[in-house]
């Protein structure tokens, strides 16, 4: 079976004022449909750049991103992004924020009533239907991120890209949202790629963890499969041997073999 998403020998460098800085070098990765893949690495290693390349928000310097054997060269709703700081439009209500996406993506194919039903279904999925008439300023950070996820899901993407989606949240809210994402992944079977710098989060959610080496010219250092059965429950996993082994492997990669050397930055 051909890979669903293929990152084919990708290089990315930025040119600023005649100076070329190589950010990513020779990234090779294939992701199957329905897989949950986390990308982990120290800050500044180009994880977000990699996600932006898949989203099409920035262009690759060399190589190609292939989604179902078609080259990705511009952003589109089939690769929806959940942004780190939610980026909901503050002048629209929760409902209108999701509607902006739904009316653009399904404006021609769905009737008004169908679109309404689809918006409400996605808000239900993240348990935010009760706040549909609130503006982003009136709801908590965790709720905003839920709406951000609903907006992305409502585009019915082939791949959901999550850019450190829980980075700005407190630990408890974070846990709730991780459970919500696991639940959605199980129910919809969608393909998801998540950027994170939280080892526990990566192991808990992922089928595979992609570990990045430090920049400049960062690349994929190692890919770890997480052979844990789903549904996963965080309390049970806390003492699970496989979970702990995976966690240890990621920690070793990050803190022994590719230690973040601040002096070098």
């Amino acid at each position: 079976m051909a890979a669903y998403l293929k990152l084919d020998h990708i290089d990315k460098s930025f040119v600023r004022g005649g100076q070329v800085s190589e950010v990513l070098k020779d990234i090779r990765l294939t992701i199957d449909a329905g897989e949950f893949v986390s990308i982990i690495g120290h800050s500044g290693c180009g994880k977000s750049t990699l996600l932006n390349l898949i989203a099409g928000l920035t262009k690759v310097s060399k190589g190609a991103v292939l989604l179902e054997d078609k080259e990705v060269d511009s952003p589109g709703p089939e690769r929806a992004v959940v942004f780190q700081n939610h980026s909901l439009l503050p002048w629209l209500t929760v409902y209108e924020n999701v509607n902006l996406a739904v009316s653009k993506v399904f404006g021609r194919t769905k009737s008004r009533a169908e679109r309404h039903g689809w918006i409400m279904r996605n808000l239900d999925l993240v348990q935010m239907a009760h706040a549909k008439d609130k503006r982003p300023a009136e709801i908590s950070g965790g709720m905003k991120q839920r709406v951000g996820i609903a907006r992305a899901l409502a585009m019915e993407p082939k791949i959901l890209l999550l850019d450190e989606p829980f980075g700005a949240l407190d630990a408890l809210t974070r846990a709730h949202l991780q459970d919500a994402v696991m639940d959605i992944h199980a129910r919809l079977g969608s393909t998801m790629i998540m950027i994170t710098h939280d080892v526990d989060e990566a192991v808990l959610l992922s089928d595979r963890i992609v570990m990045m080496t430090n920049g400049p010219a960062a690349t994929i250092g190692e890919v770890l499969s997480v052979p844990l059965a789903r549904p996963r429950r965080r309390v049970e996993l806390a003492s699970d041997r496989t979970f702990l082994r995976c966690r240890e492997a990621v920690l070793k990669f990050l803190y022994e073999r590719h230690r973040f050397v601040e002096a070098a930055q």
Partner: peptide
Amino acid sequence: DYRNVARILRLNQLEFFIKIMVPA
């Protein structure tokens, strides 16, 4: 971020102007 949202949704120039630029 608002620009990125618009790009992912593939809003055209007019939609971007009315729905994102003017309110923002």
